[in-house]
Design a protein around this nucleic acid. Structure first.
Lengths: 143, 143
DNA sequence: CGCTCATAGTTAGGTAGTCTAACAATGTGG
DNA sequence: CCACATTGTTAGACTACCTAACTATGAGCG
């Protein structure tokens, strides 16, 4: 029983390990990096403080600062003061950032979609069904 | 239809992104790193050439060389000449390496198993069912 | 008010793990 | 036996993280 859980855990870890490689492998030349895409994706729906970016990304605040500064130099985000708290910095997408993000997401999704297309209908269904559970699992591991 | 595929692809990428963080988060102080565990796991069943390590890990040969050298310094693997080809180097686990690997896997699996335990039976089933398909997907993306 | 303590972010300096380019050594096939 | 291919290492660079130390602002309390 707990035996089974550990066995499943092992197989799950294996798959995850491969997936990490995979994520890297769909990076492309001269395009946004995976972490940059992640950061921009978070900002797509609303501006966030640097601290919130860090929390969502699962990284420390100084690392988030660094990412944000890099994106700012590239003109993809803007840093503006938070009117309600002069210590805080709001990070928001620029128009260029929104465009770059859309393009990067499009290309990446196309790559993954092509791979999904090689699966059987049943396999795709299995993946689809597992996504919410994996999300929950990720959250559980975060704490 | 292809629309659905891209949408699924997007959600899948999201989950994967989180999983990367997750993999890092179960690293622990003064223990083997995730990539070291990966490398050692490959060697658990049989010795491999440096090139094979690189291929399996999805990294370039120089990166594999570096990993192997680091593991060798730690006494966890041995590099021995390949009798059938003097250019090649066979990497094999030492006894210490086998022990360290077992311990690291045990702790990591326990962490993941604890998270799995928070899911419902149904959710766990969904994860389990998806693993083969995700593996196939990983393979498809690799090419 | 004016301290003190907490919170938000940045800066500085360091590490792990990857990459490409260039090289050495060995194997292989005309 | 010579040219080309293959295997691995070395050198040098980069990204993305980390911790520690700092600055600036906010908030609670006497």
């Amino acid at each position: 029983m707990s035996e089974d859980l550990e066995e499943l855990a092992g197989r799950y870890r294996d798959i995850l390990r491969q997936a990490v490689y995979l994520l890297r492998s769909i990076d492309a030349e001269g395009e946004l990096s995976t972490s940059q895409v992640s950061t921009l994706n978070m900002l797509a729906s609303q501006p966030l403080r640097v601290g919130a970016v860090a929390r969502f990304a699962g990284i420390r605040v100084p690392s988030a600062t660094e990412q944000v500064i890099k994106l700012e130099s590239a003109g993809l985000v803007q840093r503006t003061p938070d009117d309600s708290d002069a210590r805080a910095v709001l990070v928001r997408l620029t128009e260029d950032g929104r465009k770059a993000l859309a393009q990067a997401n499009k290309r990446r999704n196309a790559d993954v979609a092509a791979a999904l297309a090689t699966l059987s209908e049943e396999e795709r269904g299995a993946v689809k069904n597992a996504l919410p559970a994996i999300g929950k699992l990720n959250a559980a591991l975060k704490s």
